[in-house]
């Protein structure tokens, strides 16, 4: 399990991360979303031991990460800005990783290279951006880590490769009980892959929840009644209204709570129109942010 407690990081007076406290369970896929400059990459660098925390702690299975080879050998990290040795090809990088990670599997590396249809002898600096990202991903997966961290990994991948990478991550999580942490600025990328999602904004963790809960806990109700009701009327009935708007006779509400109970209560008012519609994750996040007083734009 990954645990951070009041994790903070400064850069020349700029507060990049502010007191992040979270837990990431083993065998889960944890997604972190946020706008550019939110602190996602900084968070990952702290967890992988690249940066030293200025305040707070980062523990993996109860052990600090910083300068701890015993923990770091169980970690693989695919950063947003990739790095390969000058003039190296996949074979050369394979040798480098093999000399640095005792769990590195050459067999798996070669299998994944074939799967991604990459030429292991061709210099990596001749690869496209997407191919370089594929190469970095397969090298990281070949380490067979217990914890794997992807920073903006899907950026530059075509839809087919994106699905392939997601599939490989899921396989590792399922087969080896690995834990994956994926950051992205796009919710859509993470929606169908992650178990948990967190939202980072201006260095702070503003939201963290199970994806299933997020999707089912909030929903949209469209209704029309013979008489006019206001938001407070519904709240008096015990319905938690996150957002309320009216267009003519039609009321649109974002409601949080038990769906069936809310439906029953509204039915008792003899609506002319009553529909319950699911929300996308984007909508969920947007309304959560509104409730918290944050406003920002998604892509």
């Amino acid at each position: 399990m990954i645990t951070t407690e009041k994790l903070s990081k400064n850069f020349s007076g700029f507060r990049a991360l502010e007191s992040i406290t979270c837990q990431i369970q083993n065998g889960s896929i944890y997604g972190m979303v946020g706008s550019n400059g939110a602190g996602k990459s900084t968070f990952l660098r702290l967890i992988t031991g690249v940066y030293k925390p200025d305040e707070g702690t980062v523990l993996i299975d109860g052990q600090p990460v910083w300068e701890n080879p015993d923990v770091k050998k169980r970690i693989a990290y695919v950063p947003d800005e990739l790095y390969f040795l000058a003039g190296a090809n996949i074979n050369r990088m394979e040798k480098m990783y093999k000399s640095m990670y005792s769990t590195f599997s050459v067999e798996k590396c070669r299998k994944l290279t074939r799967l991604f249809e990459l030429d292991p002898k061709k210099p990596l600096n001749t690869f496209s951006k997407g191919m370089r990202r594929q190469a970095a991903t397969l090298l990281a997966l070949s380490i067979q880590p217990e914890y794997i961290f992807f920073d903006e990994t899907f950026d530059g991948l075509d839809p087919v490769m994106r699905n392939l990478v997601k599939k490989l991550i899921c396989e590792d999580v399922l087969e080896r009980n690995a834990t994956a942490v994926i950051t992205s600025h796009s919710l859509r990328e993470l929606e169908d892959t992650c178990d948990q999602l967190a939202l980072l904004h201006k260095g702070g963790l503003v939201l963290q929840s199970d994806v299933e809960n997020l999707k089912t806990e909030q929903y949209k109700i469209q209704a029309a009644f013979p008489q006019q009701y206001e938001k407070e009327d519904f709240e008096k009935m015990g319905i938690t209204v996150q957002s309320f708007s009216r267009q003519g006779a039609v009321i649109n509400m974002i409601v949080k709570g038990d769906r069936n109970a809310a439906y029953a209560k509204l039915r008792s008012l003899n609506p002319v129109l009553l529909e319950i519609l699911p929300l996308s994750l984007e909508e969920v996040f947007t309304y959560e942010m509104d409730a918290l007083g944050y406003t920002f734009d998604y892509e």
Binding site: E67, P69, K72, K73, Y77, P79, E81, Y83
Partner: peptide
Amino acid sequence: HFLNKRNASDLYHSLPHTRST
């Protein structure tokens, strides 16, 4: 040379070895 580039520096500092090693 990796000390001069952010991406290279990140890679080497993520390796499962102490800095002294």
